[in-house]
């Protein structure tokens, strides 16, 4: 009868040994390879530090000018440019300038990393059914596992700091760009591919001249999502030593500082809205070009 009331377990002893075994093995692994892996990420760390310093140390009017310029290049929309300027003035006015610059730095680097890993991976995925079937569940796991769970091995391996934070952000933010690159390429009109094949294209020509340009709007939607997800990770990333708007939010949570939390939260929202609108407008312009504007 007890079979039905109690689910079979492996027993406390063996379960503890089992977990301990994994932990010890991983600790052993990180002791042996942690430094090497850290060294591998050094150039990335240097780039991140350089960018952060640049943003923080440059005179604020110059930074706002550059950001407004980028917003203009992306969206060609005066309202968005004006909104960008106002938002950053307010952010500065409420004393969140430095944190915001740190956040922009890590988001930019994370997005670059995601693009340079995600797009090639998406391309590979689009070329083979098997690879697609293999990678898709991994992406699902990356998006659904609570981020705290993969923070643990990252911290064990690399300790606390910018690089582990960056990796955590990337793990969370890379799936959409992989997925949408794959989708975008698979959705390319079969007849266009047949046509380019019939004219004797190599597979590289086929990729660069037809598949990528036609998939670009979809890929860009992936970039947009990746940026948004990276922003959503800033608070969690700040738990493991990433500077930025997440730090005051964490402080506000533990000390019940309502205003501090709200302000920094709003700054994150403002960044999200600006990034989202600008990149969406840019994506739309890509599409418009496809339909041609010069009629």
């Amino acid at each position: 009868m007890s079979f039905f009331s109690e689910i079979p377990t492996m027993g406390r002893e063996s379960l503890r040994d089992f977990k301990k075994g994994i932990d010890l093995n991983f600790k052993e692994f990180s002791r042996n390879y942690g430094d090497g892996i850290e060294g591998f990420f050094d150039p990335l760390l240097m780039f991140l530090v350089w960018l952060e310093k640049l943003l923080v140390n440059s005179p604020w009017p110059l930074v706002i000018l550059v950001l407004a310029g980028l917003a203009w290049i992306g969206s060609r929309n005066w309202k968005l440019v004006a909104g960008t300027i106002v938002c950053f003035m307010l952010i500065g006015y409420f004393g969140m300038w430095k944190d915001t610059m740190s956040t922009i730095a890590i988001i930019s680097v994370a997005t670059l990393v995601c693009i340079s890993i995600g797009i090639p991976l998406g391309i590979l995925m689009s070329r083979s059914r098997k690879l697609e079937a293999g990678i898709t569940p991994i992406l699902d796991v990356m998006q659904t596992v609570p981020s705290f769970v993969y923070l643990i091995p990252i911290i064990m391996l690399l300790g606390i700091g910018k690089v582990p934070g960056l990796i955590a952000v990337c793990i969370y933010a890379v799936p959409p760009i992989v997925r949408l690159t794959n989708l975008g390429i698979r959705e390319v009109d079969k007849e266009c591919l047949e046509a380019v094949d019939s004219f004797g294209a190599t597979s590289w020509q086929r990729l660069t001249r037809v598949q990528m340009p036609l998939a670009l709007p979809t890929i860009f939607a992936g970039v947009n999502q990746t940026i948004m997800m990276a922003l959503a990770m800033v608070v969690i990333a700040s738990m493991i030593g990433v500077r930025g708007l997440g730090v005051p939010v964490l402080r506000a949570v533990s000390n019940q500082y309502l205003a501090l939390g709200m302000l920094n939260g709003l700054a994150i929202v403002a960044l999200a809205i600006i990034f989202d609108r600008v990149s969406q407008q840019y994506g739309k312009r890509l599409q418009k070009h496809r339909e041609g504007r010069n009629l």
Partner: peptide, 15 residues
């Protein structure tokens, strides 16, 4: 160099 094809639904490159 030897063959060229014309398609029923044109199959032009939209971009």
């Amino acid at each position: 160099t030897r063959t060229a094809m014309v398609f029923q639904r044109f199959a032009l490159m939209p971009h």
